[in-house]
Amino acid sequence: MKKIFILIMFFCSILVSAQKYYTKTGVTEFKASVEAFESVEAKNKSTTAILNTNTGEFAALLFIKSFHFDIALMQEHFNENYMDSDQFSKATFKGEIAAFNLDELTKSDKNFTLKGILTVRGISKEVETIVRLKRIGSKIVLDSEFNVSPQDFNIEIPSIVRKKIAESIHLTLSYELVEKI
């Protein structure tokens, strides 16, 4: 009788506990540069991201203040004037990689479709993009890029600098996920 209980318990945990891969040092970059003007770009090297390898569900989270610009003043303006980082400290993504199968991943890139909701400044927007996945050793490497526009998240750009900031902002993601124990 006791053995059966232990067996049930064991099964339950296996059934419910999902296999997950994650990172805390994912790199998220954006470029909003316009040729002939100062480059407007920043890098966030502390993005957390997690992938459920059973279901293909994927989520990512980053702190806006952790975006690093080469020009300190630009970073200050980004946080204070454009992103309201005190009020909206983080940006999140939650979605699913369609037809994800861990066994299909190899050493070379394989394309998948990632669909989900990107939330920036408290405003959610649906995003669909291609992600490239590969497996290197025990890591899953995820690369992707997509474009967003500042208007989608109610980011006001004053007329005086409108020419210097691209209308479409290019985001690049590069996450190396390791198994979460």
Binding site: K20, K24, I50, N52, E57, A59, L61
Partner: peptide, 9 residues
Amino acid sequence: LLNELEDEA
């Protein structure tokens, strides 16, 4: 997953 990240982050 997102809640899980909140704890991690």
